[in-house]
Amino acid sequence: MIRWIPHVLWLTVVWIALWGDLSAANIVGGFLVAMTVTALFPTAGPRRERLSFRPLAAAKFLGYFTAKLIEANAVVAWEVLTPNNDRVREGVVAVEVTGAGDAMVTLLANAISLTPGTLTLEVRRDPTVLFVHVLHLRSIEATRADVRRLEMLALNAFATRAAIAADAVEHGETPT
């Protein structure tokens, strides 16, 4: 039951936003609809993955993500405005992601697609490998380092302490 709470809350928020009405009756009505939908389609509800939430680290992730999003737009815009240059070096790079469950991989894959020059093409599990299409390839290592940076920020914001520690060990880093 507890696993359903975020899902029900999210649906309730969507309901209230769509009606644009913060009255008690609307909130209760939205909550009931959210409960019904979650009960009727249980696969969409429960999350098997344990997550946590650190506001400060989440803000850091969001800040980095927003900065990168704007940078991504500038890069693509410049590319469109100056055709026939030699800067485009495409590549598909395999990046192994160690510390992530389903929700984290989804978040990471989406974030990669919205940040500069990278686009998630394919995802494999066990072990988790993201295949990332790169528009301006510098080197395979540089791409992996970029994704790693994003992964660390996402983990710090949303993963449990145990997951972060396990991930650090996987990468041969000392847990903090």
């Binding site: 469109v80 495409e90 919205l114 686009l119 299409h133």
Partner: peptide, 22 residues
């Protein structure tokens, strides 16, 4: 413009995702 200009499907998706979202 990016959709029209880039070389392959993958590069085009870069153009379709980022500037369209922002």
């Amino acid at each position: 413009l990016g959709l029209q200009q880039f070389d392959d499907v993958f590069a085009r998706m870069h153009a379709a995702t980022k500037p369209a979202t922002l």
